[in-house]
Amino acid sequence: MPENTSNQKSTRRSFLDLVLGASSVACLGSILYPVIRYLKPLPRAGGVGPTRLTPEELAKLEKEHFVIVPVSGKRVLILQNAAQEILAVDAKCTHEGCTVQYLPGESVIWCACHNARFDLDGRVLSGPPPRPLPKYAAERQEDGGILIVAERRQSE
């Protein structure tokens, strides 16, 4: 009977339209979800800008007068000297790549591997390292946090 088939056809058609519509919306949703999450900025300091020390790192700095912090693939030694200034140098010794440490008592940066000594600006005082430690700029913020700004070139 023609009426029935046309009814059937229209129900099938509207079912198809429903499926098409619903799946399109769902598909669009699954494509837009990453975009929306992408657009929202992260709470911790933006992109390339300064790296901010975490509370645990700040605590370690207070306790031991120095802390080693990862900064975009490198490791940076942040230290607080006797005059309460914040200084920052690359933590990788320029001799064989061991991680250096800060000796507050002697006001010197020391590498335990071959007894190398650097002054707080990264210059070599004694021992085998051929080059000084690259410097970073670090600042204390009003809220007590510390920001590592960028790698400074030796000429500055």
Partner: peptide, 23 residues
């Protein structure tokens, strides 16, 4: 998982489109 979900949904859309086209 995200990829599979999206691909599955896209597949569904494609199937519906194909049937619609035929119609």
């Amino acid at each position: 998982l995200g990829l599979v979900t999206t691909i599955a949904l896209m597949g569904l859309v494609m199937l519906a489109l194909y049937v619609k086209l035929r119609r």
